[in-house]
Simulated assay, not measured.
Amino acid sequence: MRKLGISVFPQHVSLEESMNYIETAAKYGFSRIFTCLISANDKEEFAKLEKICQRANELGFEVIADVDPTVFESLNITYQELDRFKEIGLSGLRLDLGFSGSEEAAMSFDDNDLMIELNISNGTKYVDNILSYQANVSNIIGCHNFYPRRYTALSREHFLKTSKQFKDMNLRTAAFVSSNSGEYGPWFVVDGGLPTLEEHRGQDIVVQAKDLWNTGLIDDVIVGNMFASEEELKALGELNRNELTLRVEFLPGATDVEKELVLTQKHFNRGDVSAYVIRSTMTRVHFKQFDFPAHDTAQIELGDVTVDNNGYERYKGEMQVALQTMENSGNTNIVARIIPEERYLLEQIRPWQHFRLIEK
Score class of each variant (00 low, 15 high):
residue 9 F to I: 08
residue 12 H to K: 15
residue 15 L to Y: 11
residue 19 M to Q: 15
residue 19 M to L: 15
residue 23 E to V: 12
residue 26 A to C: 10
residue 31 S to P: 03
residue 34 F to I: 04
residue 34 F to V: 03
residue 34 F to E: 02
residue 36 C to P: 01
residue 36 C to H: 12
residue 45 E to K: 15
residue 46 F to A: 01
residue 46 F to N: 08
residue 46 F to G: 07
residue 50 E to M: 13
residue 54 Q to M: 09
residue 57 N to C: 12
residue 59 L to N: 13
residue 59 L to I: 08
residue 63 V to A: 09
residue 65 A to S: 14
residue 66 D to G: 14
residue 70 T to P: 03
residue 72 F to E: 02
residue 75 L to W: 07
residue 75 L to E: 07
residue 76 N to V: 06
residue 76 N to G: 12
residue 86 K to H: 08
residue 93 L to Q: 11
residue 96 D to Q: 08
residue 98 G to N: 04
residue 100 S to P: 01
residue 106 A to S: 10
residue 111 D to G: 12
residue 117 E to W: 01
residue 125 K to T: 10
residue 126 Y to A: 14
residue 127 V to D: 03
residue 129 N to G: 09
residue 137 V to T: 06
residue 141 I to L: 00
residue 153 A to G: 13
residue 157 E to T: 14
residue 159 F to Q: 09
residue 164 K to H: 07
residue 166 F to M: 11
residue 174 A to F: 03
residue 175 A to K: 05
residue 180 N to H: 01
residue 183 E to N: 14
residue 184 Y to W: 05
residue 185 G to V: 01
residue 185 G to D: 02
residue 186 P to I: 11
residue 186 P to L: 13
residue 196 T to V: 00
residue 201 R to I: 09
residue 203 Q to V: 11
residue 207 V to Y: 07
residue 213 W to T: 01
residue 215 T to G: 00
residue 223 V to I: 12
residue 224 G to V: 02
residue 225 N to F: 00
residue 234 K to W: 05
residue 235 A to Y: 00
residue 237 G to D: 06
residue 240 N to R: 08
residue 246 L to A: 09
residue 246 L to C: 08
residue 248 V to N: 02
residue 249 E to W: 03
residue 250 F to R: 09
residue 252 P to I: 02
residue 257 V to D: 10
residue 261 L to I: 03
residue 267 H to T: 00
residue 267 H to M: 04
residue 270 R to V: 00
residue 271 G to C: 10
residue 281 T to I: 10
residue 287 F to Q: 00
residue 287 F to T: 00
residue 293 P to I: 00
residue 296 D to M: 07
residue 298 A to R: 14
residue 298 A to W: 02
residue 298 A to F: 00
residue 302 L to W: 04
residue 303 G to K: 08
residue 304 D to A: 08
residue 309 N to T: 03
residue 312 Y to N: 12
residue 314 R to G: 15
residue 314 R to F: 05
residue 321 V to I: 12
residue 322 A to W: 05
residue 323 L to P: 05
residue 327 E to C: 09
residue 329 S to C: 14
residue 334 I to S: 06
residue 337 R to G: 07
residue 347 E to K: 15
residue 353 Q to T: 04
